[in-house]
């Protein structure tokens, strides 16, 4: 890694521990305003927010990024469109967004270290890494009624037979844009933009009412 390549980017830890400002999730306002119905035995959908994860957008050639990612995190880049893969622990995921763009999600606090190691590994290759952790949040939906809830909300065909585990698409969700991912048989994930988070949350509460949606915090 040449010094010049590192010095071309302004790399800093956006979640430094010494920050005096408290970190708030994009849904902080919604918790105050709309509340969170507690899950009950009747709940067929349970919503959770995975707060403060590290979201990194990787752009560049698939081959160099794949090699770097295998070395740094031991995950292979998903080569097929609209797919995602996880590392062995299941905590880190990488998703295909477009032919030269992937979304890497790592546990909170790891993004800076991962970005730095990827930059060192990629060195002078043609690539871009953008930390978008503050711009979006991950919601998980769990339960057997999740496909029904999503069918009312997204234009994409989320029938489980058409949407296997490990698939993820960027699509229209109630006039907003979200990434819909399926991470388990009854477990789905939504990557929601910060500015749409309150709108999407309230939409989910409303659409999920008939399934007695519960929110775990």
């Amino acid at each position: 890694m040449s010094e010049s390549a590192l010095s071309r980017v302004n790399l800093f830890d956006s979640r430094a521990d010494h920050a005096s400002v408290a970190v708030e999730s994009p849904l902080a306002y919604s918790w105050q305003r709309s509340g969170a119905p507690a899950p009950s035995a009747a709940s067929r959908v349970v919503l959770r927010e995975q707060t403060f994860l590290g979201h990194l957008i990787l752009r560049g050639g698939a081959i160099v990024l794949d090699e770097a990612l295998r070395e740094v995190l031991d995950i292979g880049l998903p080569g097929r469109p609209n797919t995602l893969s996880w590392d062995v622990s299941g905590e880190r995921s990488i998703q295909w967004l477009s032919p030269d763009e992937w979304l890497l999600i790592v546990p909170g606090g790891e993004a800076f270290a991962v970005e730095r190691r990827l930059r060192e590994r990629l060195a002078d290759a043609s690539f871009a890494i953008v930390d978008v952790s503050g711009g979006q949040t991950l919601l998980t939906l769990e339960g057997e009624a999740v496909p029904e809830l999503l069918m009312k909300s997204v234009v994409y065909d989320v029938d489980p037979s058409h949407f296997p585990v490990g698939k993820g698409v960027n699509t229209v969700f109630a006039k907003a844009t979200v990434i819909v991912r399926r991470s388990g048989e009854t477990r789905w994930e939504l990557v929601v933009r910060r500015s749409f988070a309150d709108y999407c949350y309230r939409w989910l509460l409303d659409a999920g009412e008939e399934y007695a949606i519960g929110v775990e915090r």
Partner: peptide
């Protein structure tokens, strides 16, 4: 042709 599947017109 990039996503290699049929997608809803609303996305285009």
């Amino acid at each position: 042709p990039y996503c290699e599947e049929l997608r809803e017109e609303e996305e285009f």
